[in-house]
């Protein structure tokens, strides 16, 4: 097949992949595998994740149940696969929502400055000083627990961090000659934002989002662990940790495998984030 018959989108993705440093490529590969696993969860999971089997309570790993069984005799491998699905969905949703909100807010604050900056940045600063979990718990206390609320809570924690990064990056770009030049060449402020500021200021936001995504898994796990996130019987990694804690000494596999899954996700996002930082944030705007 010649290069011409490959759709432009595919070549762009392939080029972007090889543009990343090697370690970041490993992170991407891990994430791709994890996403495929969650998409094919019904095919991969050998058992129903919620099927209770009283005969297999806390049964150890064997060939048919590689990760063993939990206190209700449910297959830990199947539950981990489905939990991955819940947790990754929450991570992607929360980071996407936070980034999409931070992009216009941070860009406007950085580019326009003055009172626009004050109106946008001061409330976000207030969010930033509140402890992250307290913020999440407050929101959940108002709305009630659940996966979607957990995702929104994480987005709310991340919004001020991402907006601040975007603001800083836009502030730098706003003073570049080509931005003023764009206005002098006849474009409106909005068009200049779209054409010059956002594309040139996007790097640090992407880096920060990738790094935060790794931590989002942990926040999601914490919330579920506290019973404030995903509600049983839907499996999520945090919920499984919470369930496994009680039987840690008798059946460590109930705790270990979802714990490992969290570690792998965090690792993958950190590899990606560091690689992106290397390429997109040479000035070290993301702390």
């Amino acid at each position: 097949m010649t290069a011409k018959s490959i759709p432009a989108g595919v070549t762009a993705v392939v080029r972007a992949f090889f543009w990343l440093p090697r370690s970041a490529r490993a992170g991407v590969l891990i994430l791709v595998v994890l996403v495929i696993v969650t998409l094919l969860a019904p095919l991969i999971a050998p058992h129903d994740p919620n099927a209770i089997d009283p005969t297999r309570v806390l049964a150890g790993p064997d060939l048919g149940h590689p990760f063993g069984a939990d206190a209700l005799g449910r297959d830990v491998f199947s539950r981990t696969v489905y939990a991955l699905r819940t947790s990754l969905a929450i991570v992607f949703a929360s980071v996407a929502v936070a980034s999409l909100a931070a992009l216009p807010l941070g860009t406007a604050a950085g580019y326009f400055g003055g009172w626009v900056d004050q109106v946008i940045s001061r409330p976000l600063d207030m969010l930033l000083v509140l402890p992250a979990l307290l913020l999440a718990i407050t929101l959940i206390a108002i709305v009630g627990p659940g996966s979607i609320v957990a995702a929104l809570a994480i987005a709310l924690i991340y919004l001020p961090i991402l907006a601040r990064v975007q603001r800083a990056a836009s502030l730098v770009v706003a003073h570049a000659g080509f931005v003023e030049g764009g206005r002098a060449r006849g474009w409106s402020s909005f068009a200049v934002l779209r054409r010059h500021v956002v594309p040139n200021a996007l790097g640090p936001l992407l880096v920060q989002a990738a790094i935060l995504a790794g931590f989002a898994v942990q926040i999601e796990a914490s919330l579920s662990f506290l019973g404030l996130g995903t509600q049983p019987p839907t499996p999520s990694l945090g919920l499984m940790l919470s369930e496994g804690r009680d039987v840690l000494t008798q059946a460590p596999w109930v705790e270990i495998f979802p714990g490992l899954a969290i570690a792998v996700i965090v690792l993958a996002f950190n590899l990606l984030g560091d690689g992106l930082r290397h390429r997109l944030d040479p000035q070290g705007m993301v702390s």
């Binding site: 000659g177 080509f178 003023e180």
Partner: peptide
Amino acid sequence: PVFQDPLGSLD
């Protein structure tokens, strides 16, 4: 306009 820093003045 023509600006000073020819690198900064081109996207």
